[in-house]
């Protein structure tokens, strides 16, 4: 029982980490609360549904979703956020909320208000492996999450691009003075963050075998809470916070506390409690 719940929690935590990663990366370079990131997440799931017609293979479906979502992320940055950099911070936030509302409704109009299945085929029959603790589907989600997080870790810590993001994080002008192509660095940031969110969309769609227009609603705000918990802009703090929230949720919902504390408020309760003690989040800098 204990181990099962732990695995349930870690699986959810891995998904949260994937969704929140892009959010906190974007915050790191642009200081924008990118609510429509959750729209990109849902878009990923829908691209997955469409991609099924090409190939039922999970890897192919995920890569396609990542490609499209990455490009959509870059488009958002180019068309929506770049012109708004000079305005007060609430402007891009509201614009992003508008974009998210719009996207949700577009999904509904395009694919109908129904729950669609996402029956992908998993390579190596990984989803067939079932033990008393881990289900095959959880193995699939967990291993994909690990692969994507390692990819992100590599790009952030071991490439010039990651270095460029760090420079941009400090200060646009200084970064530019040191020869960083700021505009390109920001675009690549959206590309990677959005691609990973798209992959998360496919994985969630696969895990619950359901894709629906409002599937981004809860992640939109829960991911925000997790990002703040991890210290906005702090990528590794975010991953740890995501895992913690996943695990806490898994154990609280089966405890008596779960009776009066709905699952989706747990992240916020944790956030409020933590912020009272540490105003910059669990792993916040400054």
């Amino acid at each position: 029982m204990f181990w099962q719940q732990l695995v349930n929690g870690v699986t959810m935590g891995g998904i949260y980490a994937l969704v929140t990663l892009g959010l906190t990366m974007v915050y790191g370079v642009l200081r924008i609360l990118h609510i429509s990131h959750a729209g990109v997440f849902a878009l990923g799931a829908y691209i997955g549904v469409v991609a099924l017609r090409l190939s039922p293979n999970l890897v192919v479906v995920t890569l396609l979703a990542m490609l499209v979502c990455g490009l959509v992320g870059v488009l958002m940055q180019r068309w929506l956020y770049r012109p708004l950099l000079g305005s007060s911070r609430i402007v891009p936030l509201i614009a992003s909320i508008g974009m998210f509302t719009l996207m949700e409704d577009l999904f509904r109009l395009a694919a109908g208000p129904y729950v669609l299945p996402l029956p992908v085929r998993v390579p190596f029959g990984l989803d067939e492996v079932t033990t008393s603790v881990v289900t095959g589907n959880q193995l699939v989600v967990l291993s994909s999450a690990v692969i994507l997080l390692v990819l992100a870790w590599f790009v952030i810590n071991h490439t010039r691009l990651g270095l460029a993001w760090k420079a941009t994080e400090q200060d646009f002008e200084t970064a530019a003075a040191f020869g960083v192509n700021v505009d390109r660095a920001v675009a690549m940031n959206f590309l990677l963050g959005s691609a990973i969110a798209g992959a998360a969309g496919v994985l969630v769609g696969f895990y619950y075998n359901s894709v629906y227009p409002t599937m981004g609603s809860v992640p939109a705000y829960k991911a925000m809470a997790i990002a703040v918990l991890g210290g906005l802009g702090n990528v590794w703090g975010t991953v740890i916070a995501a895992l913690l929230i996943g695990i806490i949720e898994a154990f609280l919902v089966i405890s008596p506390v779960g009776l009066f504390l709905p699952r989706d408020s747990i992240a916020f309760v944790a956030l409020i409690l933590v912020l009272l003690l540490r105003p910059y989040g669990l792993f916040g800098r400054r």
Binding site: V228, L232, L271, I272, L275, Y280
Partner: peptide
């Protein structure tokens, strides 16, 4: 921004 998110919470 932490405040904005906390108010959602």
């Amino acid at each position: 921004d932490s405040l904005a998110i906390t108010t959602i919470g």
